[in-house]
Each structure stands twice: as C-alpha cells, then as structure tokens.
Design a binder for these strands. Structure first.
Lengths: 237, 237
DNA sequence: ACTAGTCTTTAGTTGTGCCTAAAAGACGAC
DNA sequence: GTCGTCTTTTAGGCACAACTAAAGACTAGT
C-alpha cells in the first residue's frame, strides 16, 4: 500500500517510446518552457531558458545536456536548443494536461481566471492519464482553455488560433475576444474587471495615433488601454 | 514567470509554526503514514514504516531522524516513533487535502470508488490552500470522504467514527454501511459489484460458526463473504 | 545469564537538480 | 583582424532521499 511514486523514482524508457510519466517534473517543465519560447522565437538560448525557469545559467546548461542525451532536444553548443519531434510530443502532452486542468478547475470551482494558471501548474505533473481522459470526457473534449488557448486533442494535434490582435481592429469595429494572456494574475484580474474575457464582445471605439492608447467598449463601458496590452489580446471578428 | 516551485525548494519555517507547504513531499508522506499506523498500533516501528512506504529500513531511519530534528515526531532509539502535536497537525492537514480531493474527484468525474484513493494520493501534495478552501466550499464542507472516512474540518478537528464492524451484527439485523477500506482497488471493485458501499443498506442474514463466512443481503442479493472482510466494513444500525 | 537471531542504526554511495566560481567560446567595435 | 565584452559551458559542491553493506542493540530461548 501507499507505495511512494515520487519525483524521479523509477523513470526510464518503456518499450521504445519515451512517455510523459517517464520523465522527472523538472525535465517536463523545461520542455514546456522550451516549447513556449520556441513558438515565439525559433531557437531557444540557454540564458533565456534559465531566466524563464528562474534558475542560474549553468543549471539550464546541465538540463539542456540531459534533454539532448534523452533525444528530446537538438543542442548545438553555444547556439541554443530546439525540440525534436519526441520533445515536442511530450511538451504537447503536458500542455494538454495543463489546459484541461485549467478548464476543469474553472468550471467546477469558483476559481477566478487569474488563479487558474498557477493552480494548474501545480497539479499538472500529478495528473494521471486516467484522470486526463475522464476530465476530457466530463468537459466534452473541449478545444480551448479559459484563456482561449487551444487544447491539444487526444492525438496531440493542436489548432493554432488565427485571431488578430485587438490593436489591429479599425475604429468602430466589433469583435469577440478570443484569447488573453494566461500567466499574469494581476493583469487577468484587471481584464476580468473590464469584462474583457474570451467569448465576450468588444468594440474598438478609437485609437490614438503614434502608438497611443486605444479606447474600447466592453460590457457597455468605455476604457482606454495601452496598445501594448491590446497587442496581447486576440480577437475574432 | 513560470518560476519553478519544486520539490524541497525553499522550505523552512515561517514565523514560528511549521506548515504543510514548508515540508517536502517525502516528509509529508511519512507523517501521513505514521499517523495511520499510529491509529492502529500506538508506537510505530521503523521497519513497519519502511515496509508501508516501500523503502529500505535505513531510508526510514534516516527520515525518522529528520522528522525528529524538525520536532514532528518523538523518536526513542530502537523503540519507534510517535507524532508530536505538530506532527499530528501536519498529518491532519494532509489527510484533509487527501479526503477532500477524493470526494471532489468522485463527485465531479466518473471516477470509480476503487480509483479515487490512488488519484488523490498523486494530487494531494500539489493542492494549494486556496484550492482546498474552494473545494471545501463547493462540496459544502463535507464530513466524510467516499469511503466513509471522516474529513478533518478547517480547524483540523476530526470525528472518529463510531460504527461497528459488519461482522458484529446479529443474524437478521439490518444496518447502513458506513465505511469501507480505501486502499485496495480490487477489493473496492468487488464491494462496488455487491453494492456494499457507504450509505447503502445491508442485512446480515446469517453467520456460520467458528469464524466461518457470513451471508449478507445487499441490493436484494445474498452473498457469502469472509468474516475477515466483514471485519473491515463498518456499519451503523 | 548468555547467546542467537532479528530489528535498527551507522557508514558510505548514488542520482537529481540546484548553486557559485572560473574557463572557454562567440561576436561586435575599432 | 584583434580585443574586450557578454554568453555559455565546465568544474566542483550541496541538499535531498533513496540504496547496500556492515555494525550495534534489543529480546527470546536455552
């Protein structure tokens, strides 16, 4: 009973295919972060990775070597990393766990959009495949998490959203919010207060020139927001 | 962002009071196991602990020394351990997490009673206080988990069940199942098939003498079960 | 009361993932 | 094209929690 199944105990390969549960939490976290950084910028530098993971650069180097040895990333010395096909598969599995959890928590508890990401972060490594499947079924195989990010399906296919930044709307144009940032809790509380959330209608009232702020209408109220913020919000018209 | 908050990073004491989140998962697991063994048998021997935790005896000794240094157990050399007041508090916090999770999963997903324990075991360490509170509220501050075990309340008070073993009923007597074992998945699947679950009515039809099997009626069907199994099932008449 | 056997503890290693300090590589400025 | 700066990697350690092997302490059996 109570057999401890804890960090990094009895990991390895099963059969031929490396699988999520075979890898330590740390390895998984790095893969997820590399996936995210890669989507923004191609090859990922060790220093960027270290910074995002909140560790010292040598720690990131060490992990990168480990990931390369596992065949999960391509590492060119002094030139950063890129996920291999295997590495990407694992990152997507983790992303699926994460986003399903976000939606599950948001729907079954009174958990604000601002807190959902952090809670899912804590739980994602502990989610079994069994539970993943049950959550997926209970939620009706959802395609997007509460922030509007796509959830990879059971075969890990992911639909990359084709929304446009809110800042790209023309004055007077209406659209539906599709996606908001997921990590910044304070920002999310602010967006919640504005009702600027996925699925909600929004209208761009006017845009000040020269990169100035935008005035939007959401929930019947006009508010001025920075263009920089508007860039981070995706809408669908 | 994504600041890693992983096993045993930045633990210690906060203020004066040791708190669940300050302790590594391993420490928590040991405390929970000691709590459970202690309830059955007073002082807990190192070897028993090692066996239950699935580790070699020297590992248990090492952990016991650590727990003693943290003031969470009393350790008399060669004589086993007992939880201190602090140690018991932490064990109860963890137990609360565990049992709330069991109930939450059982109620919100199609998760069988047999699987609930194992899943909660995986998730309990990752449960934040915030989420604990929300789950408690969403479930209406429940007092018992799906196996019929009591859930410590927010102040960690716990009601020790006062049911009697099913084996103690007199022939012809009816009662309600109150509590079943929680760890043995196979057994729980069997009990589920018999409808011998917490809250369900049961009648002891007759008992063979000399420690022989008992015949019970549940869900309209008569079944013979061993006395040993009947000892593990608590009922309330 | 002694000794045989068992249980517990000590001693010493291992694997993970982090750290700091120092060396090596890459790259832009002159 | 070389020099200085900045980034990356190597080298060496530490904490945690597990392990095996061996020594020490209780307990029962004679």
């Amino acid at each position: 009973m109570a057999a401890r199944e804890n960090p990094a105990s009895s990991r390895g390969k099963r059969g031929g295919k490396t699988v999520l549960a075979d890898l330590s939490d740390a390895v998984q976290d790095y893969l997820r972060e590399i996936y995210k950084l890669q989507a923004e910028s191609g090859r990922v530098k060790t220093s960027t990775l270290a910074q995002q993971m909140g560790v010292a650069p040598p720690s990131a180097t060490a992990m990168v070597k480990k990931l390369a040895a596992l065949g999960l990333v391509d590492h060119e010395l002094y030139r950063g990393v890129r996920l291999t096909r295997d590495g990407e598969r694992i990152a997507l599995e983790l992303l699926r766990h994460h986003r399903l959890l976000e939606l599950y928590l948001a729907q079954t508890l009174e958990l604000g959009l601002d807190a959902v990401h952090a809670e899912a972060d804590r739980l994602e490594h502990a989610l079994s495949e069994t539970l993943e499947t049950l959550i997926d079924e209970a939620l009706g195989s959802p395609t997007h998490d509460p922030h509007g990010d796509p959830i990879p399906d059971a075969k890990l296919r992911i639909v990359h959203a084709k929304g446009t930044p809110l800042s790209r709307l023309a004055a007077g144009e209406r659209a539906t919010v599709q996606k908001v940032p997921d990590r910044d809790a304070e920002l999310l509380r602010y967006l919640t207060s504005l009702d600027l959330l996925p699925g909600r209608p929004v209208e761009l009232v006017r845009a000040e020139p020269l990169g100035g702020p935008l005035t939007i209408r959401a929930n019947g109220r006009e508010t001025a927001i920075s263009r920089q913020l508007a860039d981070q919000i995706q809408v669908l018209s």
